[in-house]
Design a protein around this nucleic acid. Structure first.
Length: 497
RNA sequence: GUCUCCAUCGUCUAGUGGUUAGGACAACGGGUUUUCAUCCCGUCAACAGGGGUUCGACUCCCCUUGGAGAUGCCA
């Protein structure tokens, strides 16, 4: 039988790491088994629905390169794949359940239910949840409620005794006494929309889903879903509950742990291949040894058996490492255009970049590449190439344990050596050696010569290699910046002097 | 409160009765280097606890502890 799996997010927020991990696992599983990957939009919560979320879903999957065989936009034989467009289907099935005596109308108001819940929580009652108030209403009572104009919900009549078991590929058999199953959950809301439980079961059946891979937070609902399948007389699919993705503190990953939406990661300059690679390794491993996987490899090699049961902590540091690795694997030509948008956003280059700006970008890529963890790092790293640098302070110009007079001398003489060396087109090594010799002559550390030059030229004590930086900045600007620094030091020396 | 699930280095994990318990990230130390970064080398670091089963348990069973999730007219 052909494998058919689905990712069924609800467009009530941005796609986050956990959701995407679920999507990826489903997608890889489908591909690895020559099956179909189906996308279904579960937009039955009208309160929280947003167009932005739906768009974000599409953007995210596209960015990751995840395509679906059936779903919105592409269609398919069991559509529509957007639940709000399947509105009538759910009522039909829910009413059939009522007709079969497996579900019933409930007229309880949200207010009553809220009060009930509060009381139960306060009294730490053993029975939490709906009290089945409407489970056995007489025809007369129902008529009275109807007369009041109350729009009822439909609730499932969960058996009061016995137990329900479902099988999970990873976890084995999981069973629950029926009295511990959610007491008569709502299937169809008063607005006519289905709840997750109803829509999910109906659609998975109608769409011939063979395997359900979803987060472990759904385990408690497993028996309930089995009960629904039984009520309809349908065969349940194979279940595989995925370990949850946690934050550093072991709690379910959320905003307070940092960025969780794919959109944020993308904006900061994470590469899709890096994010995909790393996320795939949370809760799944190949051999505990191999760690780099391309999308194509994962589509071949992914398997359910290697999924871990225990929840995994999302490690931002390791993601950074992966991202750096993937950045370094890019060719310069590939990387340059990825960097430009960050420079534009920071106002360092024009849109489109001028010819000279583009020249600098192309030239700086090989130098910057190994210094990037995320693409946006390029902004601070390369700022000195694009802006008029503010004059450095004396403190910035002075290396550790070196006074202004000495530094001035080192910078003046160093500048002379550097300038003539560059103008005579001597090799970098030759000029470096001459500058080192100068340090020896002045009886100071090598750094005492190089650092003031670096700060003068780049505005920072941390920069790409000096000669690379100088070439990138250009000789004229370099000389001007050094001369300015010399003046600053001169002023300082005279002032104290 | 009740129910369900889970448990190997700080983190992600390999391991399915006999291993010096392996790898990666992080941390730390060192090397390369004019700074930073990259790169290379090394160090630290784990089977939650207690009972069983067995000739032998990280591996199987039970209990405890710890963690998580569910308990909505949200998914």
């Amino acid at each position: 039988m052909e494998v058919r799996v689905r990712y069924a997010p609800s467009p009530t927020g941005l796609q986050h790491i956990g959701g995407v991990r679920t999507a990826l696992f489903n997608y890889f599983f489908a591909r690895a088994n020559g099956g179909k990957f189906i996308l279904r939009v579960e937009d039955t919560d009208r309160e929280r629905y947003s167009d932005e979320s739906l768009q974000d879903l599409f953007d995210t999957l596209e960015w990751l390169g995840i395509t679906w065989d059936e779903g919105p936009v592409v269609g398919g034989p069991y559509g529509p794949y957007i639940q709000s467009e399947r509105f009538d289907i759910y009522r039909k099935y829910a009413e059939q359940l009522v007709a079969d005596g497996k579900a019933y109308y409930c007229y309880c108001t949200p207010e009553r239910l809220e009060k009930l819940r509060e009381e139960q929580q306060a009294s730490k009652s053993e029975q939490q949840g709906y009290d089945r108030h409407c489970r056995n209403l007489t025809a007369q009572q129902r008529a009275d409620y109807e007369a009041q104009g109350i729009r009822p919900v439909i609730r499932l009549k969960v058996p009061m005794d016995g137990k329900t078991t479902f099988h999970d590929v990873l976890m084995g058999d999981i069973s629950r006494r029926n009295r511990d199953v959610s007491p008569d959950p709502v299937l169809l809301k008063s607005d006519g929309f289905p709840t997750y439980h109803l829509a999910n079961v109906i659609d998975d059946h109608l769409m011939h889903i063979t395997h359900i891979m979803r987060a472990q937070e759904w385990i408690p609902s497993g028996p309930l879903h089995i009960l629904l399948y039984e009520a309809f007389g349908w065969e349940p699919p194979v279940y595989c509950h995925l370990p949850m993705v946690m934050g550093k503190d072991g709690q379910k990953l959320s905003k307070r742990h940092g960025s969780t939406s794919v959109r944020d990661f993308r904006a900061k300059g994470y590469l899709p291949e890096a994010l995909m690679n790393y996320v795939s390794l949370v809760g799944w491993s190949y051999d505990g040894q191999t760690e780099f996987f391309s999308k194509e490899e994962l589509e071949k090699v992914f398997s359910l058996e290697k999924i871990n049961k225990a929840p995994g902590v999302f490690d931002y540091k390791k993601l950074d490492w992966f991202n750096g690795q993937y950045i370094r694997r890019k060719s310069d030509a590939e990387l340059a255009p990825l960097l430009v948008p960050y420079l534009q956003e920071a106002g360092l280059v024009d849109t489109p970049p001028t010819i000279s700006q583009q020249e600098i970008v192309d030239k700086m890529v090989p130098v910057m590449k190994e210094r990037l963890k995320v693409l946006s790092d390029i902004v601070d790293l390369s700022r000195f190439l694009f802006v008029v640098l503010p004059p450095p302070s004396v403190e910035e110009l002075l290396p550790k344990n070196q006074d202004a007079a000495t530094t001035l001398k080192a910078l003046e003489e160093g500048y002379a050596i550097l300038r003539s060396g560059l103008e005579d087109e001597l090799s970098d090594e030759t000029i470096e050696q001459a500058l080192s010799d100068l340090a020896g002559k002045l009886a100071i550390k090598v750094n005492g010569v190089f650092m003031p030059i670096r700060v003068a030229v780049t505005g920072s004590s941390v920069s790409p290699p000096l000669f690379d930086s100088i070439r990138l900045v250009g000789f004229d600007k370099t000389f001007a910046r050094i001369e300015r620094a010399i003046e600053i030091l001169k002023d300082e020396v005279h002032k104290n002097g």
